[in-house]
Structures are given as structure tokens and as C-alpha cells.
Amino acid sequence: MEAVRVRITVNGEEHVKTVPTCMTLLRLLREELDLTGTKEGCSKGECGACTVILDGVPVNSCLVLAYQCSGRSVVTIEGLARDGLLHPVQEAFVRHGAVQCGFCTPGMIMSAVALLDANPSPTQREIREAISGNLCRCTGYKAIIEAIDDAAQRMAGWVDSQAADEARV
């Protein structure tokens, strides 16, 4: 098995690992870096449980090889909360009952965060499309869609109030 050295930034922290060329990003995260928040549901790009954000874009980490991520930056579910504060999307998921078994949740949240980063005020349809690659068997999706919608509005409010604060200074 050929091995390769990978220099990768995960949640702001740089790691250097020597891994087999066939190792997926998902396995690198879960097995080499102990970041087990990212889940494996199908290993085939069909369920979205393994979604992480790679250089700003949501990807199925089961379909990306670890060595392809050398020099790149990954954000996982463990990297969202800051200083003990939940990301607005995480908070909205709890508040809206968007979590049942929670297995789809990390991937779902990463898809939602990537969506809101790219499109801060999505329509319901855009939200549905953005998470259409993330399967959930428990919730029927409605609470998830509401949570993302609510997070978008709060984040917009938060950005506005920050802008207003800055303007005042």
C-alpha cells in the first residue's frame, strides 16, 4: 500500500499525517484525528452523513481521498462552536426539535452552514435543495428546514446589528 504525507488544516489546526493513498478524508478524520462527530452511513456519497466543509464547499468526505486535501482546509461539526457558544445553526437545530436520533445531524448541519455561508437568505426551496443529499429517517425534514430558516434570519440580524455597532463606533 502506498503512503503519502498529508498536511491538512482541520478546524483551524494544522495536522501532518502519513496515510495510505486510498484513505478517505472521512477515515482520516474519524480514525487518525479522532474526530468522530462526522458520521458514516453509506460510504458511497448517498446519505450525506459524512458531509464536511472543504475550502468553503460542502463535500461527502467518504468520496474524497485524504491526500487530495493536502494544503487545504476542512471544517467539521466539532469546529463550529466557538468559545463555548453554539453556532446559530446548531442552536436552531436544538430549539426547533430538528434532532431526533442525531445521526444525520452533523452532516445536515454542515450542509446548512455551507448553504448559509454562500447564500445568507435562502428560500425554503433552496434550503430543501441544499439538504436534499442528506438523508434523515427520523424527522420528516420539516423541523430541519425551519431550523435552517430561523438560523438564517438570526444570523442576518446578528450581522446587521454588528454592522450597526461598527457604524456607531
Binding site: 474526530l35 462527530g37 458520521k39 458514516e40 466539532e78 446548531q90 436544538v94 445521526f103 445531524t105 452533523p106
Partner: peptide, 17 residues
């Protein structure tokens, strides 16, 4: 709100695998 909600949205909840 679910008592296990925060663990599940942060990736801290431990599943079998």
C-alpha cells in the same frame, strides 16, 4: 428541548461505531 440535543449538534454524542 431535547436533553441530548446539544451533544448531538456538536458531534459529541458517541455512537457505536
Amino acid at each position: 428541548p431535547r436533553v441530548d440535543g446539544v451533544d448531538k449538534v456538536t458531534g459529541r454524542a458517541v455512537f457505536g461505531a
